[in-house]
Amino acid sequence: MDFLRPATWQEALAAKAEHPSAVPIAGGTDVMVEINFDHRRPEYLMDLNRVAELQEWEVGEDTVTLGASVPYSRIMESLRAELPGLALAAHTVASPQIRNRGGVGGNLGTASPAGDAHPALLAGGGEVEAVSVRGTRMIPIDDFYLGVKRNALAPDELIRAVRLKKATGPQQFSKVGTRNAMVIAVCAFGIALHPDTRTVRTGIGSAAPTPIRATTAEEFLTAALEEGGFWDNGKAVPPAVARQFADLVAGAANPIDDVRGTASYRRHALAVMARRTLGWTWEQYRGKQQDERNQPCA
């Protein structure tokens, strides 16, 4: 095994081009487990900790460019307003020690369906900045996950950052595990209201071979909200709509039975989480609407 220590992003790209089998390691929270337990013996291990720009983020007009190695603890603390769904998801990642090391780049690189960031990324919307010596590709998050632990990166590409849409409405994230902390998702659900486009997006984790969106549920809810004029009148979502949304989310999943839970429980739990998180986000949206209506004219 060789240990590569690029000092700059350019060096990292060059190294990856030269050794496409090189395994990038940043937080180490996936890679080191595999090495410690003899599941993986890469020919090259490439440390990305020295590439300072991977640890940075930039808040723009409509987007946040989030470096691949920005630790989850920083996302929780510093990006709650801009990326509330991801900040909530970050808070559920493993333990404080792991949140201090792990970042979104690792979740994307590993592309495990259980990665906590995925549902939030899918719901919030964004693109993955995949870079190689050949140039930069912006891969829409919806196209990124290809199969169980397979993603759309080419062998010579590295993830520099994700470019995420800044939240224009409430977002929520919820995850079921059989322990009250430090737990891998049995299944997880993310939801984001997008009042600017009057749409709703979702993300499902650990309930299909890849992280997925519940597109039928999204379309149903988007249509129902539009039809009822809910975005404007700020009324509560009718229970029947919430129920159907929840059922459609559960229906979108394609879970399996494993040591962490059964397929039918996963479907059931997704429906509950979908209903609850829709309630929380919509109440927050309505509350904000009310506040705005109650503002005296300046």
Binding site: S174, V176, R179, N180
Partner: peptide, 16 residues
């Protein structure tokens, strides 16, 4: 949420 079932995973705010 730390004092609720599910804990940090944010599964309930008291519902159920």
């Amino acid at each position: 949420v730390r004092a609720l079932p599910g804990g940090l995973s944010n599964t309930t705010h008291g519902e159920g």
